[in-house]
Design a protein around this nucleic acid. Structure first.
Lengths: 208, 208, 208, 208
DNA sequence: CATGAATGAGACTTCATTCAT
DNA sequence: CATGAATGAAGTCTCATTCAT
């Protein structure tokens, strides 16, 4: 979905402008929310006129869509780290857990993600984008969990799906906790999160 | 925070009108979001003039606040069930887990809760209300977990906080999963959720 | 302009109700101004329902018109005092000057009069009523100034008109001063007002 | 309090637009009063969209405040004339009296001033602005009356205050007379006004 | 006679978007 | 390429007035 821009002379400049706008918009959305941030504020933050933005994006909605795409790419890079991690998958994921927690409790990205999720509930285009992003993420996670170095490489498909969903659910939910309690720390959360995550990454005991 | 309405002759009618408005508003918010739904649409859905709504609610904001309050009361009744449950707490909560999942995956209430969370990011009154609601819920959960019939009655405060937060996080996160994947079923989720929840409701092994 | 009321059973009750409304409305207008006071507030102050007021007055505008009429009648009674005063007119008016000042600087009636004057600028009905009231007042004043006991009984018509207008202007203007400076006292004003008034009530010296 | 407008490229255009709006608003206020004139009417009169006005004024209230400020500046220029007048102060003020009368009896500015006064009764910002304006005017008048060329340069403070207030009262009151009697002429008023003013500008006789 | 629930037009204001320059 | 002046639809809210009861 790159060629959103209208006629442009130098593609390099055009790309730079787009980045400029996306960065500014993301910051504004973070501060004020999608509805709270106006094009005027975004244009001021981006250092260009409001009208000019429409040479690069068809609408305000198109901007948030592009931001979602960027988020997607960023997330991929995060998963990459886990894949490069030596040792078994369980250790890798538990090792990286605090990073994951940190990321999901960063109030900065928090609000904007929430806004996007809320928007997804009624804007099918946003919903589709988010779903695509998430499907990619789940794919990566599935690769990790079914790799040779994983203790779960033989579990059945349905259970795998469930585990991944619960893991994602738990992580994404942190965002909501942090939003309600800004004073909540990662350390506190990790006390119970780590054991729960371990359970989700190991075979369930027959006894349970 | 009961009598937000202005003076009314017949309290029964007044209450009915309030309900009428709240129901209509909730539906509109669900469809269009808090900002997306206008008073015009709400009034049409409620079957009365826009101006008349202001005889029962001081502002659009007051409406969403009332909706939040109603949700709070509903939640209390849910917790009450757990408290009345015979047997130990672990069993009670695991028994009621499917109900909890069901509730958190009901797309109907889903979107509106998300919207409220997003709104909380920029509307301090909404944020306060949500936080209060959540504090109440955590209080109930804490009572449950520290009751005589709980296996966790002796754990230290910090760990207790962590467990509760992770439990809430995991449950609330389901809402986001369901929003992205409407086809996701409770049964699927429960496969991995139940073991994870069990871990969160039992003492952590020293070995872990 | 009495029969503004619609069908009524007992004229006595009807009149009482009208008084009730007028008193309440006057108080509200004084506090909030004509535009600032709503029918809701007036009806509450009057101790009856908003709808019922419309059985006695056709509109909000009709209420202020009635208030103006009442003011007119009140003013007549004030002039009566001067006419009954023993001694010459000059002494009578100077004697009563502090009362006149007091009345024109009463912030209570102040604001409502101002509102009515402003309204007169664009509402011909109000303008007519005020003019009629004022014409009556000027007539009384003229009688006083041309009575046998007055030093001005022989001056020509044009000069008389001018004197009366300036006197009224000076007195009415006090209202504006008091509004701007609530701390302004009658005593302070009288220091210069009394000599000025004396000049206006005596033949102008040739020398001047 | 100059740059109330938002950022504008060409200050000349911005200023022109502000003038355009102020002129239109003043005309509308004159015709319908502050509350009676809507932004729609003002914008139509100004020849621009209602929304655009908000690029130059923050609110309807800001518009009337600007109008008051303009009036203030205009008034200053009038006082300047008196100060530049050769001869003694008494002569200067009596000479300029007809101009002052003309100004205070101009029905055009009349009604809008009245409206502002009435508005001051309930809008503290307007009240403050009007009071400031008047204080400035009184300051100028005081300078005039206590200058070396004045016969009143040695009178005590309280009497000076009283004289100024009565002078202003008398002049401002003319506005009300003209409003009630549009047929009233300056010449007629001046017959009695000039002697009264002379009294107010000269030492009071002991005999009085 | 009396109520107050209900209306609906209109108030001010915001903001995404367009377009002449 | 770039601006920002300008638009206009839509937003929330108020309030004089009506009418079924």
């Amino acid at each position: 979905m790159k060629p959103k821009a209208k006629r442009q002379t130098d593609p390099a400049i055009a790309l730079a402008r787009r980045e400029q706008i996306l960065t500014a918009a993301a910051e504004c959305f973070r501060r004020k929310g999608y509805h709270g941030a106006g094009m005027a504020e975004i244009s001021k933050t981006a250092g260009m006129s409001a009208g000019h933005i429409y040479n690069y994006f068809e609408s305000k909605e198109a901007i948030i869509e592009s931001i979602i795409e960027k988020d997607m790419e960023e997330m991929f890079s995060i998963f990459q780290k886990f894949e490069d991690h030596p040792g078994d998958v369980l250790a890798a994921l538990l090792d990286g857990l605090n990073i994951g927690v940190q990321r999901h409790m960063d109030t900065g990205s928090c609000v904007i993600d929430l806004d996007m999720m809320a928007e997804a509930g009624r804007n099918i285009k946003v919903a589709t984008l988010l779903r695509e992003t998430d499907i990619q993420a789940r794919g990566r996670m599935r690769q990790l969990l079914t790799s040779e170095r994983s203790a779960l490489k033989d579990i059945d498909e349905r259970e795998l799906e469930s585990r991944i969903n619960v893991i994602f659910s738990m992580m994404a939910g942190l965002l909501l906790r942090k939003l309600l309690y800004p004073e909540l720390t990662e350390e506190t959360v990790l006390i119970a999160l780590r054991p729960a995550m371990k359970t989700l990454l190991m075979p369930f005991d027959k006894a349970q």
